[in-house]
């Protein structure tokens, strides 16, 4: 028990912060309830997938600046393919788009390995490339999404065996998030491959000497990031009903959530839980400021300040840890 607490200390602290924020929200807006949580989960979805994508690359010792652009590519692809197509065809579209995401991530990873250029430069270049691809697919926002897909993330889900009072508090969007992340992350985390990803991020040379296929592991990490980015892109199309070729603010938000979530930017440390809770915290802060009817522009300033302060505090903690 104490070991679990110690291992997940950061995530538990974040969760406490989230609960505290929820209480504050309730104090600001006494009517805040199940519907508020539902819209929070829906708003957090694309951010959460972008963050998940960033987490796995950062753990593997890299950084992916092209995530928002990959989300734009998958979003416009899905919207363009579903435009005028039948509801059943959307299943094919979803599968195709997920494969597309994996392929894009693999291209990122292969380029990082082949060119031996730092990750940050390669993914900066690929940010341009994927943005261009998205613009070639759809010049302006457009396309459509199948009705059943849009329905997936709206409302609450009835879970058999649970009374309606409880399921009313569980939005479908949250379930979609947990299921999608769990299906990919949990098996990966427990596999040999997952261990290799941590090893490569921690010390690539030591991993190589211990017989880890460093290059292959890196490519896999980027491919999984591509898969998460594709999920994020699909969610964007689902929630808006169209695809937009201009990347959203997901890059910066994903890096902020990764840092706030306790994942070391140097690689090899951290998990998925902390950053995902961090995403909800950052979204909830935005909600609170909106509820307090703060000017949205000032909200941006406050959000940025919070992010910078969090990172500075993280730096201070790391400094003290080093000198101790």
């Amino acid at each position: 028990m104490t070991q679990t607490v110690r291992r997940h200390g950061w995530a538990i602290g974040l969760f406490a912060l989230l609960v505290l924020l929820l209480i504050i929200t309730k104090l600001i807006q006494p009517g805040y309830g199940a519907s508020g949580i539902g819209s929070l989960a829906r708003a957090a979805l694309p951010f959460a997938f972008a963050t998940a994508a960033q987490v796995i690359v950062v753990i593997a010792g890299g950084i992916d600046l092209s995530i928002a652009s990959m989300m734009a590519v998958t979003s416009v692809t899905a919207a363009a393919m579903m435009d005028g197509a039948s509801e059943e065809f959307a299943v094919v579209v979803v599968l195709f788009v997920l494969l597309l995401g994996i392929a894009m991530g693999m291209i990122n990873g292969i380029l990082v390995v082949l060119t031996r250029v730092p990750d940050i430069v390669v993914t900066l270049a690929m940010l341009f490339v994927w943005e261009g691809v998205a613009l070639l697919i759809l010049r302006a926002p457009g396309g459509a999404a199948a009705e059943w897909l849009k329905g997936i993330i709206v409302g609450t889900a009835g879970i058999p065996g649970l009374p309606a009072e409880i399921t009313a508090w569980i939005p479908k969007a949250l379930l979609v998030l947990v299921v999608c992340l769990g299906i990919v992350w949990l098996p990966l985390r427990r596999s040999r491959l997952g261990l290799s990803i941590y090893a490569v991020g921690s010390d690539a040379l030591a991993a190589f000497r211990s017989g880890v296929a460093v290059n292959r592991t890196k490519v896999v990490a980027y491919a999984v990031a591509g898969l998460f980015a594709a999920m994020g892109g699909l969610v964007l199309t689902m929630s808006t009903g169209i695809g937009a070729p201009i990347p959203g603010p997901y890059l910066l938000a994903s890096v902020a959530a990764v840092v706030l979530g306790g994942v070391a930017l140097g690689g090899g440390r951290g998990g998925l839980l902390g950053p995902i809770i961090a995403v909800f915290i950052l979204r909830l802060v935005r909600t609170d400021l909106t509820l307090l009817s703060v000017d949205p522009n000032i909200t941006t300033v406050i959000e940025g300040t919070i992010m910078v302060v969090v990172v500075i505090l993280g730096g201070l903690v790391a400094l003290r840890g080093r000198s101790a």
Partner: peptide
């Protein structure tokens, strides 16, 4: 933009 990206790379 695609070309731009690949040239940087």
């Amino acid at each position: 933009r695609i070309l731009f990206g690949f040239i940087i790379l």
